[in-house]
Amino acid sequence: QEIVSPEDYIKHPLQNRWALWFFKNDKSKTWQANLRLISKFDTVEDFWALYNHIQLSSNLMSGCDYCLFKDGIEPMWEDERNKRGGRWLITLSKQQRRADLDRFWLETLLCLVGEAFDDHSDDVCGAVVNVRAKGDKISIWTTDFENKDAIVHIGQVYKDRLGVPPKVIIGYQSHTDTATKSGSTTKNKFVV
């Protein structure tokens, strides 16, 4: 008789259930109408089933986004869990689409589903990749721009996981500042 360990047939549960959203820029529709929920998952196996099934970010048309958020949080500033929050922002050069975009986005996803930020993972709302002709962006969104300890810990771990060199600075910006900025740059509340 063969003994089968539970490891062989029970999927590995994640701490959180996650929802993957897709945004396609169709100017004839409203912003919200362009945002579609693709699927939700709450196990390691189902994460990969979804990830392996969809296009890499570098294959998306310009103007598209993927958003991975905890179930119950909508990927927009207005959500109750986002409105006092902000994001660690990674801006990529055009050359980095080929070299880094897919690698950075997968690393971001693994940080989220694996709860890489320890107790401060509770502050994480989700992550977004924006595919844009002028330069792609990846960000991790957190719930409260006043939670300095959580934000700095998340930023340090994230920068390390992406392999960003120490001399390169990444910044955290509040959504309020991003929404009300007048120029093309938003001031950083924190940097690591």
């Binding site: 047939y9 029970i10 999927k11 590995h12 549960p13 994640l14 701490q15 390691v44 196996e45 994460f47 990969w48 089933a49 990830y51 392996n52 690393e107 693994l110 589903v113 694996g114 709860e115 890489a116 320890d118 107790d119 993972s121 996981r161």
Partner: peptide, 20 residues
């Protein structure tokens, strides 16, 4: 505690056959 999974553990499941 939290269910934390490190990157190598997670990556190990990318091409596993689906559970029955």
């Amino acid at each position: 505690g939290k269910r934390q999974y490190n990157r190598d553990f997670l990556l190990g499941f990318q091409f596993m056959p689906a559970c029955v």
